[in-house]
Design a protein around this nucleic acid. Structure first.
Length: 474
RNA sequence: GGCGGCAUGGCCAAGUGGUAAGGCAACGGAUUGCAAAUCCGUGAUCCCCGGUUCGAAUCCGGGUGCCGCCUCCA
């Protein structure tokens, strides 16, 4: 069975078939780097990561690209009052737009590490691809899909693309009627959007056939996806807000330019809510990894929380929910940490059988439009099975670890490589204390035993007594 | 104002026609010197009203609430 994904274009779940067998070309709308990313942005990136990892797990060769938007992100339809996000941030922070972009890209890459998102083939920056954008814009002007105004701005003409609106369900007529923005005289239709802008105040300027200026926002994705993945993409993802106008405009540009179907499968994720309400970059109420860590939570827990809900369902972030996710991750760690094997035992056929069933069920759930919640039920089944099983034959223990490694290809929690802290500088000292406690317990000196355990606890070390002796971890 | 999505036990969250997955928390029990980890057990008729059906969380209609898009935003 192959994958089935919801396709925003047709509003239903349908079979996914890439253009080239075994290869998936996927473009993810990435961050705009004029500010820190918040956990809402993390959800979108985690969705892209889950999708990518699911395809990896199923054996596809995934050609993934995620853009970094570092220019042109302004209110395209209103040049008079519109403000470029980069320019605004530059003024706010007293730095140049270029410095702003680099600083937030650096921070984003830090989050990439923390959230354990697999790296795409490329993270192209818009400012590095202005030439490609100009190339498409020129062609669109030449073919009559775009026009140049007296002011030197270039707009795409939605009237030239009859299918405009097919992704979002908007119609050109409805957009015109519902327009809340004053129509610019220079635009032929209120829904026309900018491909190139001239603004002497703008810090970022490039030469173009229409004079110095900068590119519109939408054109970057058409240009960069084409450069790295070709004219026809298998999957294009983004947040639900990207459906309109961004992706609608990309379709118009790209398909007018190439004459081919731009994207075979459009996938969008719902926004994250916080305490039941909206969370947006423009609100100033956003939560970042810094708050999560300051509250003593791990990024693994945040990752688990964000991936545990279906991407098309609302997910309400609460600190309670994050604490719950922390418990789940701790539980998985505990199961793997306490997994024991005994070379004298004979293999139990039920182990390999159960592991295979878990893996198969896990993948099948993912193939069903990324039903991660259902997939997680299989992980918990494996966990319960292992906890109840007792010591494993060596080969069986390896099989269990392989099964956890399999699901971790998706979960990305580094389940098998958690550091127990046993190789720390003070490990020998801790071993000695643990041994002293063992002796104390043997002589029923509970006071001393508890004293030692309290001291270790204070140092962030947990001691567990088991039938096989005591063990500790940080 | 227009368009769209969602509403499942304390919390997170699957399930699109046949008598409600899974997890977290809580509580009771086992185990433990006490813990930790682990095991066993306990909870919902699915926002409200009406309809279709032998049968609905699942389909249809109405209502309420929340969210999103229409304007930069994952």
């Amino acid at each position: 069975m192959g994958f089935r994904f919801y396709d925003t274009l047709v509003n239903e779940v349908r079979p996914f078939t890439p253009r080239e067998e075994g290869v998936v070309r996927m473009y993810n709308c990435g961050p705009t780097v004029y500010d820190s990313q918040h956990i809402g942005n993390y959800r979108a990136a985690t969705f892209a990561d889950v999708l990518r990892r699911s395809l990896d797990l199923a054996g596809y060769e995934v050609h993934q690209v995620m853009n970094l938007t570092d220019v042109g992100h302004l209110t395209l339809d209103d040049i008079e009052s519109g403000e470029d996000k980069m320019e605004l941030a530059a003024r706010r922070e007293g730095r140049t737009a270029w410095e702003i972009a680099q600083a937030y890209i650096d921070e984003y890459m830090l989050v990439v590490e923390k959230m354990n998102w697999r790296r795409p083939l490329a993270y192209p920056r818009a400012t590095d691809h202005v030439a490609e954008m100009i190339e498409i814009t020129e062609a669109l002007v030449a073919s009559g899909h775009a026009y140049v105004t007296d002011a030197g701005n270039v707009y795409f003409s939605v009237a030239s693309f009859p299918e405009y609106g097919k992704l979002s369900g908007n119609t050109v007529e409805a957009l015109e009627a519902g327009s809340r923005v004053d129509v610019l005289d220079e635009k032929q239709h209120p829904a026309d959007f900018a491909l190139w802008k001239r603004d002497a105040e703008h810090q970022m300027q490039w030469d173009s056939p229409w004079g110095e200026g900068f590119p519109g926002w939408h054109i970057e994705c058409s240009a960069m996806s084409r450069k790295y993945l070709g004219d026809e993409l298998d999957i294009h993802t983004g947040g639900e807000d990207n459906v309109f106008p961004h992706h609608e405009c990309e379709i118009a540009q790209s398909e007018s330019f190439t004459g081919k179907t731009f994207v075979r499968h459009w996938m969008h994720t719902r926004h994250l809510q916080v305490d039941g309400g909206k969370m947006a970059k423009s609100d100033g109420t956003f939560i970042t990894y810094e708050q999560v860590e300051a509250r003593g939570h791990s990024m693994r827990a945040l990752r688990y929380l964000l991936l545990s809900a279906h991407y098309r369902m609302p997910l309400n972030f609460t600190w309670d929910a994050l604490a719950g996710a922390e418990s789940v991750v701790d539980g998985l760690d505990a199961t793997i940490r306490t997994l024991t094997s005994d070379a004298a035992l004979a293999a139990d056929p039920a182990v390999a059988e159960r592991c295979a069933a878990v893996e198969a069920g896990f993948l099948a759930a993912l193939q069903d439009d990324l039903n991660v919640s259902a997939a997680l039920a299989h992980v918990h089944d494996l966990r319960g099975f292992v906890n109840k099983h007792g010591p494993f034959a060596t080969a069986d223990a390896d099989r269990v670890r392989a099964a956890f490694a399999y699901v971790d290809e998706l979960l990305g929690l580094d389940l098998l490589t958690q550091d127990s802290g046993a190789d720390g500088d003070d490990a020998a000292e801790i071993d000695a204390l643990v041994q002293e406690r063992i002796d104390a317990r043997a002589s029923k000196n509970w006071a001393r035993a508890d004293e030692i355990r309290d001291e270790l606890t204070g140092r962030g070390i947990t001691v567990e007594d088991t039938p096989d002796g005591a063990r500790w971890y940080r």
